[in-house]
């Protein structure tokens, strides 16, 4: 069985560490006993065919599956020496520290400014909100496009801009890890490229786990790639290895496009 020992975390503790994580939706066993360590300040891509459990696994990392009433989770996810699923862990706090960007841009029906300010406000931020909004928009490479219309509706932005706004919104609550669920799948190639450049920039300060359907994208942006199939982790290792010299035949067939 491939395990986390496949990757070298450089002696540092992993940012996130899944141990024997299983997810059940009613009778369906969507994720089957996965062990996976996410090194800090790296980009880990989760790839695999539709329905392989990669989005479900991603949602285990910030307890988003708690919101699905039929979902049941086993195993542990280590984060800063704690198991995210311990009884004394508040899922609301987990989601603040482990942010998430979704497949389709989902800005709030509010102004650009209020979209960014929502997270800090509900978390009791009492510093300079204007500065935080500017900083977040700059980090998401959106500031130059919107700085003269912060009070316009977020819905007036293009799809790619909306997604960068959603990333800026996530960054505004100062998370340590950012989870991205196919963040570019609803965007055109140019908008996709901008998101990819952004991810490359962000990894200096954040740990990123990204689900993607796009093999080239995984190859371009990630440091490590995990290949999931039918709810199991087939192979996990440095992206170069997974794409050029995978150990498993199924991995090679998938990443070269022979099935999936």
């Amino acid at each position: 069985m491939p395990t986390t020992h496949d990757i070298d975390t450089g002696g540092k503790a992993p940012a996130l560490e899944a141990r024997g994580v299983s997810v059940f939706y009613g009778e369906t066993h969507a994720v089957k006993g996965i062990d996976l360590a996410v090194p800090a300040n790296k980009v880990v891509a989760l790839v695999g065919p539709s329905g392989c459990g990669k989005s479900t696994l991603l949602r285990c990392f910030n307890r988003m599956n708690d919101l699905v009433t039929a979902a049941r989770i086993e195993g542990t996810v280590g984060f800063r020496g704690k198991n995210l699923y311990d009884d004394d862990v508040d899922p609301v706090e987990v989601r603040r520290r482990i942010g998430m960007v979704f497949q389709k841009p989902n800005p709030f029906p509010k102004s650009i400014y209020d979209n960014i300010a929502f997270g800090p406000r509900i978390n009791g931020f009492d510093g300079d909100l204007d500065a935080l909004v500017e900083q977040s928009l700059r980090q998401a490479a959106l500031w130059d496009e919107v700085n003269n219309r912060l009070n316009d509706s977020a819905y007036a932005l293009s799809g790619g801009q909306q997604q960068r706004l959603c990333i800026a919104r996530t960054l505004a609550v100062k998370p340590e890890v950012v989870l991205m669920d196919e963040p570019a799948s609803a965007l055109d190639p140019i908008a996709t490229q901008r998101i990819e450049e952004l991810i490359y920039e962000l990894k200096k300060n954040y740990t990123i786990v990204i689900v993607t359907h796009n093999m080239q994208q995984a190859a371009r942006i990630s440091d490590y790639t995990a290949f999931l199939y039918m709810g199991e982790l087939v192979e996990y290792g440095p992206t170069d290895t997974i794409f050029t010299n995978p150990r498993e035949e199924r991995t090679e067939e998938y990443v070269t496009g022979r099935f999936g």
Binding site: L67, V92, R95, R96, M100, N106, F108, I122
Partner: peptide
């Protein structure tokens, strides 16, 4: 109200 709005809100650490 689309579920994506709720998810976005929960995802930012909203109760």
């Amino acid at each position: 109200v689309p579920d994506s709005i709720r998810q976005a809100s929960y995802g930012l650490g909203a109760t």
